[in-house]
Every structure is written in C-alpha cells, then in structure tokens.
Amino acid sequence: MIKEITIGQYFPGKSFLHKLDARTKLILVLAVLIFIFLCRNFYSLALITVFSVVCVAVSRIPLRSMLKGFRVLFVIILLTSLLQIFYNNEGDALFEWKKIHITTGGVYTAIFICVRIICLIFVSSLLTYTTSPTLLTDGLERLLKPLKVFHIESHTLAMMMTIALRFIPTLIEEVDHIMSAQKARGADLETGGLLKRAKAMVPILVPLFVNSFRRAYDLAYAMECRCYRGGAGRTRMRVMKLAVRDYIAFVICAALLAGIILLNIFFEAVI
C-alpha cells in the first residue's frame, strides 16, 4: 500500500523538454515563475497561459496523470479564489445582496489568482516530470557552486539529496516490512483515536530509526572506503554541456518576457 507513494515523480521521455540541460530548465522555470507574476492584464495572462499549455503539450506527458496528482490542489485553489470574490470590494459593483458585495476587482483578483497558481503548478511540476532526480541534483550542484562565497558547499547539499533519493525507496520498503512484522504480532495500527494511533507507531518508528542509523553508519564507511572526502578534487562522470536547444529555449523565454512587457504597456492594467 505504502509502496504506491511516489516522490519526485519523473516520467522518462525523449521530448524537447526532456532533452534540455537540467541547469537550463532550473533557470528558465524560475524565470517563468517570475513572469507569471509580472502579468498585469488579461492579454499578458493569456500569453503566459498559452505558453504553459504549449509546454505541457511539448513534454508529451499524459495530461490525465498530471491532473490526477493535482486534484486536491485544485480544490484549494478554487476555494481561495472564491474567498477573493467575497472579500475584495474594489472596482465596480456587480452584485449586491444584504452584506455580500461582489465587485469587478474581486472577480479579477480571483481569476488572476486561479490562473497564476495553476500555471505555476504546471510549469514547476514540468521540471520534475521531465528531469530525472539525478540530473536535477547535478544541475543544482553546478548552479549553486557560486554560493561558495557564503561558505555554502553546493556539493554537500547535492550529496545529501542524492543519498536521500537513493534511500527513500529502501526505507519505504523497510517500513512496509516492519509494519507487516508488527501486525503479525497483533499490533493494531488501524483503529482507535489519535493518541492510540500515535502510540501504535512506536513499534514501527523505533526499529526504523535504529535500522536507519545502522544504514547510515554502513554507508559512511562504504563511502570512505571508496575514497570519498567531500567535493574537493572530485570530478564527475557526466559532463554537462549546453546544446543548441538550450540556447533556443533561452531565446524563447526572452521573447516571452518581451511579449509580457509589451502587452503590459499597451493595455491597461487590471490588477
């Protein structure tokens, strides 16, 4: 049951987005997230929406499986947007009844919030959908290298991420195993109030922690045996090199930014 949880989902593929360098994707996703908040009117908002939809289409990731993951989020977004309609009283009145005032300002804000967050989710999740966790970690490590000035070792962060990614499936399997074993001894994990359930977790969590420490100790030993001594003097097998398509992606995003700015200038801001 617990095995069905997938973290940092990645859909392998060969699309344009899959092939982009991880660093390019990291930078551009960050840029596009900012662009989303630059939109001041419906025209620029439409442009960024079209852009997001095209990205999803280009990635060739089945829309259905994407939407499935977002189901809960959509409910939350819808609720926050609805709240905006009732609380924001700026602009012209559209509807009034007793204490409820619905104004254009409220409706516009609701639409903007709704569309922006959806675009945001789609674009940022495309990053993990089209980039394998290892490549993502690699890209982050290389991008964050300049942080050395602030005594932050990007290598250490990346190594922690790598190890976490490596051990998450192993630990999930282990939890499954321990749960079955304790259930076989009559542990009741499914009934009772909050306190009883929290108490029932002790027989699962104690062995899990004890075993994790043992694993950590073994792993540290194994890493030292393999001559690990931090990032200094370390090379990487994978060479990250920007290709023509990466430059194309940068140009497209620059064009997008220009488009948004122009639309913002030519048309009146509504928000």
Binding site: S132, P133, T134, T162, I163, L165, R166, T170, R214, R215, D218, L219, A222, M223, R226, C227, Y228, R229, G233, R234, T235, R236, M237, R238, V239
Partner: peptide
Amino acid sequence: PDNQIVASIVEEDVAFGPENLGVEP
C-alpha cells in the same frame, strides 16, 4: 548490498569511486 550503494542509478554508483579519485570524465 543495500547499505553500500550511494547513487540512485547503477552507472552513477559505479562512477562514485573514480569520481572521488578525480579521474577525467
């Protein structure tokens, strides 16, 4: 075997040692 594999992809794990030794990519 579970506690000595560092990376989440087979070839990356095999590369771990040589990378630490600073071998050319």
